[in-house]
């Protein structure tokens, strides 16, 4: 049996650091997947950076923040990485594919949930988001990040 928890974190200020806690279900056995979605609340035409211009056809991805997720028990930090805005150029002009396989979490937002297997022996998942979108835009940017935590639940006896 699978369960899904959607937790929304709102960021309002430039460079804001927000800690949060996500309570897991009582009968959670494993955390099996992660995914996130970003929703901009500030008007996108009022100076908020939504793409980075470059001379080459390749446009670097917009990193809007840093995300850390950790379990309080033995697993510790199980996800630490950048939150990346949708990148239309995902995979373009990337010559490393033959040698270094492209990972969803290294170049762009993951198109589907990132598979993980974390023992859910913890009551809560603790995490933080450190804003970078406001920093590169030079102003306060209001946005919400929906964090999707997929969990495998224990079957009822």
């Amino acid at each position: 049996m699978e369960g899904l928890i959607i937790h929304t974190v709102a960021i309002n200020r430039q460079g804001e650091l927000k800690h949060f806690e996500i309570p897991l279900s009582n009968n959670a056995k494993f955390i099996t997947g992660l995914w996130y979605k970003v929703r901009l609340i500030t008007d996108a035409e009022s100076g908020v950076v939504t793409e980075l211009k470059s001379r080459s056809p390749y446009q670097p991805e917009v990193i809007i923040g840093e995300l850390s997720l950790s379990s309080n028990q033995r697993e510790g930090v199980f996800y630490f990485g950048k939150i990346i805005l949708d990148n239309a150029n995902y995979g373009l002009l990337d010559y490393t594919g033959g040698v270094f396989r492209v990972n969803n979490y290294s170049h762009a937002k993951f198109p589907q949930s990132l598979k993980v297997k974390v023992d859910a022996d913890t009551a809560i998942v603790h995490g933080y988001i450190h804003d970078n979108w406001g920093v590169i835009s030079g102003r306060n940017v209001r946005y919400e990040i929906d964090l999707y935590i997929y969990q495998q639940l224990k079957e009822k006896p």
Binding site: R13, Q14, G15, S68, V77, H130, D131
Partner: peptide
């Protein structure tokens, strides 16, 4: 990875 500590940080 666990977080930050900075007394002067108001954000």
């Amino acid at each position: 990875q666990n977080g930050f500590f900075e007394l002067a940080n108001t954000n």
